[in-house]
Simulated scan of single mutants.
Amino acid sequence: MKLQQLLCCTLLVIAAGTASAQSLYDEKTYRPAAADNRAFRVGDVLTIQIVENASATANADTGTRRNNDMSAELARPHLPAINAGLGVRGDFDGGGRTTRSGKLVAQLTVSVAEVMPNGDLRITGQQLLLINDEKQRINVEGRVRPQDISDANVVISSRLADAKITYVGEGELAARQKPAWWRQFMDWVGL
């Protein structure tokens, strides 16, 4: 009986030696139960609040004046002298003013595409809306510092480094905003 028990224990030890155990802990994906929900790794999502206001004004005034006078006298013996004169005067006054402003307020969720060596997160994402057969597309790319992410996993667009935010419309309304081809040609020619 003791021999059978010893043989059984030996077989169990041999069988256990060939089995391998894997840990349930993976440091790449581990997040403590008490941790917040802020994005910190590739594939995590993050909400961007886009609040952008831009305005620019440029003024230009130009004034030039030019006066040129030239005269000549031709004297011929025994004939009356011929006097000739030429006067040129030019005035130019010009001016212009350009004013442009824009505002974009939106919110979209993007993905972390890369964790950079300094810990910043490179984010990218887009949102496509279809309103009355008009496509409205918002694209966002940039870098986010982890300390700029709120506890609610939100970042305001002014905290993005190297930000590229585009808002493009496609459809009938957007096409009507562009001048006709012949008007573009006339502008190119200068007419």
Rank of each mutant, 00 (worst) to 15 (best):
V105Y: 09
Q136N: 10
G63A: 13
E134L: 00
G85T: 08
K135Y: 14
K135V: 09
D133E: 14
S111Q: 04
A113N: 03
V115A: 03
V88T: 15
L79R: 11
L128N: 13
D61P: 00
V115E: 01
V105I: 10
G87R: 09
K135W: 07
T62I: 15
H78P: 05
K135S: 11
G125E: 06
A58C: 05
R97L: 02
I131P: 03
N59T: 04
Q126H: 10
T64R: 11
T62R: 11
T62F: 15
T99E: 14
G142P: 00
A81W: 05
R97T: 12
E134K: 06
A113M: 07
L79K: 11
L86M: 09
A113T: 05
S71P: 02
T99L: 12
H78W: 11
I138F: 03
S111G: 01
R122G: 09
N139G: 07
D133R: 12
R137T: 03
V105K: 13
L121W: 00
G125I: 08
G125S: 06
D93T: 04
A72Y: 06
L74I: 13
T99D: 09
I123C: 05
R122T: 04
A72L: 11
G87C: 04
E114N: 10
N139H: 02
F92T: 06
V88I: 15
N139Q: 06
G96A: 13
K135T: 05
G102Q: 02
Q126W: 07
V88S: 14
G96D: 07
L108T: 02
L86T: 06
R100C: 07
M70H: 15
V115W: 04
Q127W: 05
N68Y: 08
D91P: 09
V140Y: 04
G90R: 08
L129N: 11
V115C: 04
G142N: 07
K103Y: 15
P77V: 15
R137D: 02
L129Y: 09
G102K: 02
L74Q: 09
V115I: 05
G87S: 11
F92I: 09
T62C: 07
G125D: 02
L130R: 15
E114V: 03
G94C: 02
A106G: 01
N59R: 13
G102N: 05
I138P: 02
Q127M: 13
L86E: 09
S101G: 12
F92L: 14
N83H: 06
V112S: 06
A72P: 00
H78D: 15
E141P: 00
V110Y: 01
T62N: 09
V105L: 14
I131G: 06
V88E: 15
I123L: 01
V88A: 14
A113G: 03
D91N: 11
